[in-house]
Measured scan of single mutants.
Amino acid sequence: TFVALYDYESRTETDLSFKKGERLQIVNNTEGDWWLAHSLTTGQTGYIPSNYVAP
């Protein structure tokens, strides 16, 4: 799992909003700078900017 370093507000319907400190499970990280992730807090799935999270 990864932890959010910053808050992120989604800009498209495929993005995932999250708050700093939220735990995220990475589903697919082969898309370059945008990873498909599942929030362990909200249960939602969407794309996140990879530079906003850390292991």
Rank of each mutant, 00 (worst) to 15 (best):
Y52W: 08
I48M: 03
G32W: 09
Y47G: 02
H38N: 07
L40D: 06
N28R: 09
T12H: 13
Y47R: 09
N29V: 14
T12W: 13
K19P: 01
D7P: 05
S10F: 03
G32T: 13
G46D: 00
A37S: 02
Y47F: 12
Y47P: 01
V53Y: 04
S50I: 06
Y47H: 05
S50N: 07
E22L: 01
S39C: 03
L36D: 01
G32L: 11
N28L: 10
T45S: 10
Y47D: 02
R11G: 10
T30I: 11
W35F: 06
L40S: 06
V27F: 13
L24K: 00
W34E: 04
T45L: 08
R11F: 10
Y8N: 02
L40P: 09
Y52L: 14
H38M: 15
G46Q: 00
L16Q: 02
Y8P: 00
V3A: 04
D15F: 13
R23C: 14
T12S: 14
S17I: 04
T1I: 15
W35Y: 06
F2A: 05
D15R: 12
T41M: 11
V53W: 04
Q25A: 10
W35I: 08
P49S: 05
S10E: 04
K19V: 09
Y6E: 07
G46E: 00
N28Q: 10
L5K: 06
L36K: 05
D33M: 13
E13C: 13
P49H: 08
F2S: 03
I26C: 05
K20Q: 10
P55W: 10
T14C: 15
K19G: 05
R23N: 09
A4F: 01
E9S: 10
L36V: 07
T1H: 11
L40C: 12
L36R: 04
L24Q: 00
S10C: 07
Y6I: 07
T14W: 15
L16Y: 05
A37Y: 01
R23T: 14
E9D: 13
L5A: 04
Y6D: 06
T41K: 12
K20R: 11
T45I: 12
S17F: 04
P49N: 08
G46R: 01
G43Y: 06
V53P: 02
N51P: 06
T41Y: 11
T45V: 12
W34R: 14
N51A: 14
N28W: 11
N29L: 13
L36I: 08
G21E: 03
D33A: 13
H38L: 15
E31N: 15
R11N: 13
Y6H: 08
T1N: 09
G21Q: 02
I26G: 02
F2K: 02
N28P: 06
N28H: 09
D33R: 12
T14H: 14
T30G: 11
P49Q: 06
A4K: 01
D7C: 06
V27E: 07
D7T: 07
T30P: 09
G21F: 05
L5N: 03
T14P: 05
K20P: 01
Q44N: 12
T30W: 09
K19T: 07
Y8I: 01
T45M: 12
V27P: 05
D15S: 09
Q25C: 15
G43C: 09
T41W: 12
T30L: 12
I48S: 00
T42W: 02
K20Y: 05
A4M: 06
E22D: 14
R11V: 14
L40A: 06
G43K: 07
E22R: 00
G43P: 01
G46L: 01
L5C: 09
T42L: 03
N28K: 10
L16D: 01
K19S: 08
E13D: 14
T1M: 14
G43R: 07
T14L: 12
V3L: 08
L24N: 00
I26D: 00
E31Q: 14
Y6F: 12
R11M: 13
A54I: 14
L36T: 04
S10G: 15
Y52F: 12
S50V: 08
T41G: 07
V53A: 05
V53T: 04
Y47K: 06
Y47Q: 05
L36M: 08
A37H: 00
D15G: 15
Y47C: 10
V27W: 13
L40K: 06
Y52V: 06
L40F: 10
T41F: 09
L24G: 00
N51H: 13
G32I: 11
A54H: 08
S50T: 06
G32Q: 12
I48A: 03
P55C: 08
A54Y: 10
Y52E: 01
E22M: 04
F18H: 01
G43A: 05
Y8C: 04
E9R: 07
T1F: 15
D7F: 03
T30Y: 10
P55H: 09
H38Y: 15
T30K: 12
A54V: 14
L5H: 03
P49D: 05
S10D: 02
E13G: 12
F2L: 06
D15N: 11
N51V: 08
D7I: 01
L16M: 14
L36H: 04
G21Y: 05
G32C: 10
S10R: 10
I48H: 01
Q25F: 15
D7M: 03
Y52R: 06
Y6V: 07
G32P: 15
R11Y: 09
Y6A: 09
D7W: 04
F18R: 00
T41S: 12
I26Q: 03
I48P: 00
L24Y: 01
T12D: 11
L5T: 04
T1R: 06
E31C: 14
R11A: 12
D15I: 11
D7V: 02
L16W: 02
V53L: 08
V27T: 07
L24M: 09
F2V: 12
T41D: 15
L36E: 04
T14D: 11
Y52M: 13
G32H: 12
E9N: 10
E22Y: 02
V53C: 04
E9I: 13
T30V: 10
T14V: 11
T12Q: 11
S39N: 14
W35G: 01
G21C: 07
Y8E: 00
D33Y: 15
G21H: 05
P55R: 08
D33L: 12
D7G: 05
A4Y: 01
G21S: 04
V53F: 07
P49M: 07
T30E: 11
T30S: 13
T1V: 15
S17C: 07
S10I: 04
S50L: 04
T1S: 09
T12K: 13
E13R: 08
E9A: 10
R11H: 11
V53R: 01
S17R: 06
P55M: 10
P49A: 04
E13V: 10
I26W: 02
F2H: 07
A54P: 05
S10P: 09
D33I: 11
G21D: 05
Y8S: 02
T41C: 13
L40W: 09
L16I: 12
Q25E: 13
V53D: 02
T30A: 13
P49I: 03
L16K: 02
P55S: 09
L16C: 04
T42F: 02
A4W: 01
E22A: 04
K20M: 08
L16R: 02
S39I: 04
T42E: 01
T41P: 03
S10H: 05
W34V: 09
T42D: 03
R11L: 12
K19R: 12
T42H: 03
S17M: 05
G46P: 00
N28M: 11
N29Q: 14
Y52P: 02
A37W: 01
G21R: 02
E9M: 11
T42A: 03
E13I: 10
Y6P: 00
A4D: 00
S39M: 03
E22V: 02
D15E: 15
I26E: 01
G43W: 05
E22S: 04
I48E: 00
V53K: 02
W35C: 04
A54L: 09
G43V: 02
K20E: 06
L16G: 03
